[in-house]
Nucleic acid binder design. Sequence first.
DNA 1: CTGAAAGCGCTTACAG
DNA 2: CTGAAAGCGCTTACAG
Lengths: 341, 341
Amino acid sequence: MRYQGQRVTASDVAKQVGVHVSTVSRAMNPQTRDLVADDVAKRVLAAALSLGYSPNSLAAGLRTRRSFTIGVVLPDITNPVFPPILGGIQDVLEAEGYVPIVADAGREAARRETVIERMIARQVDGLILATSLRSDPVLALCRARGISLVLVNRVAENSGFSAVVSDDHRGMKLAVDHLVALGHRAIGHISGPLELSTGYGRLQGFRQAMSAHGLTVPPEAVVTASAYARDAGREAAGTLVSQASGLTAIAAANDLLALGCYDALRARGLRCPDDLSIVGHNDMPLVDMVDPPLTTVRIRHHEMGAEAARLLLRQIAGAAEGFDVILRPDLVVRASTAAPR
Amino acid sequence: MRYQGQRVTASDVAKQVGVHVSTVSRAMNPQTRDLVADDVAKRVLAAALSLGYSPNSLAAGLRTRRSFTIGVVLPDITNPVFPPILGGIQDVLEAEGYVPIVADAGREAARRETVIERMIARQVDGLILATSLRSDPVLALCRARGISLVLVNRVAENSGFSAVVSDDHRGMKLAVDHLVALGHRAIGHISGPLELSTGYGRLQGFRQAMSAHGLTVPPEAVVTASAYARDAGREAAGTLVSQASGLTAIAAANDLLALGCYDALRARGLRCPDDLSIVGHNDMPLVDMVDPPLTTVRIRHHEMGAEAARLLLRQIAGAAEGFDVILRPDLVVRASTAAPR
DNA sequence: CTGAAAGCGCTTACAG
DNA sequence: CTGAAAGCGCTTACAG
């Protein structure tokens, strides 16, 4: 029986069984269990169970120089895109005996650096970053530290780190092709912040897809939102609608932005899809229930997280890095898009 | 200059400055810095910076028997209720130098126990559980381990552990009073799982509020959903509508359930609020954008998480436990409720 | 104000 | 197959 606050250690178990702590250590670890006589191992395990012993992984980690801990840095946990990514990461990590330490780094670059420094001080075995800028100075720091790292959802150019992302060009092509097929020609774009690969890549994808249809994109038909947030989308849509008259459709760089468009249209007495068709990106939860149900590009976020975790674990185990996984998105057609009047 | 994978330690810094490691340790820690001569401290800090040294917190934790790590156990990270709770927890922890280890425990009781055991093995300084059942055997285990623990969102009866929750009785009273004021008399309830305090408490709150208005609740006017999920809500609403004819309103135990009601009504060609008024609970993101915008009971989830973290930290510092914080919810009236026809 | 020593709880070559 | 020893990188009484 133990008292509160008094942890039971390997030496307590050793004492009870009458063996040395090193034998307890070997018996507890499945990898080394066969170095120990069967009956001894059995007695150790039984004693451990009855005393409520489990090895202190801090101590083990200090000795083995591995913490079995992975740092996950998110830009905004309340953005519905990230929970499923985190879920996928967790599923894979847990199966391999790892645990995620998660931090919401917010929008300031300085905070991202602090957060990463802290995680390194905590001896994480690797890092998964969902916060990367296209050109991100923090990555040089990580490189210098020699830490294993995988980017998820957003890539950095020329960082050399592996990344798991959605095919943003293809996603926008799906959106534009769909609108064009409905008969739209004057299509605007609300882009995400251009320092993010998703913002930049989707804008490029938009332009390419338009030009593939022989359609021109006048400068006033593109507005860049200040953040991936609903209010930023509302503001950008307001600007777009007032500066680019004659638009019949808007392809937004993500769902939150698309929902902000809804807000802006409503404020002006315009109706979707009657006056303007709108396409989002992500297919986040509940966008099938908004009014009107949102046509959007679906990304498999859970899989994205799981794949990032797998890549990282392989890398920690010695596999090569700098190897990207591009997930293929799908179009989900709902009621926010229709033929122009 | 360091090589990859070679961590710099206190003794590297000590060597460079020409002092003992213990002096480095004292200089690095703001609490003990004044035990060291000013100029020595300055030189240590400068050397630490130039070498890229930060103390290995695993080693420090082993020595001080504190990990500055808190385990957070969630039932389902993709349920939009939990990210803001986690956000609140993180904000408080981070400010105090703690870090959350988060795990999604899913629905199986066995997994919850495993997850908690693992966290304890990882020497968490405390636990925040959002997964508690009203009567939860896992809590006895935590008690026996003597670990600091705070419950959030869901309470356990007689566990002795502190909890931070919303006032579920009051929440349901707000919902029922609103419906009654609109003229509804025949009101049904879709309850959450009754083994959860939110499910049970909101059902009780519903009954009390109804009886305070002199209204009876026939048995067929209450259906218990199998989980807090949209599909479970759809199913429960189907049962409710077909077994309790004449209902003019439904108070659901949470928003996901209310959204499931929307699905069920739509499948039957019924309209909300024309045929049936619906009230949710939580005010999760986007329910103001669904069709129709959902009238619901707002809970301050971020604050709930922050308060739970504060309580836990105080408890770790030696404060008394068994002290509940009940947050007061508000009613948010939108378009899913109207006078009955 | 600073150093030397002990020890947190493990793991792992090294003997035997 | 098992024990004894060393050491992972810190912190903290204990001397001086």
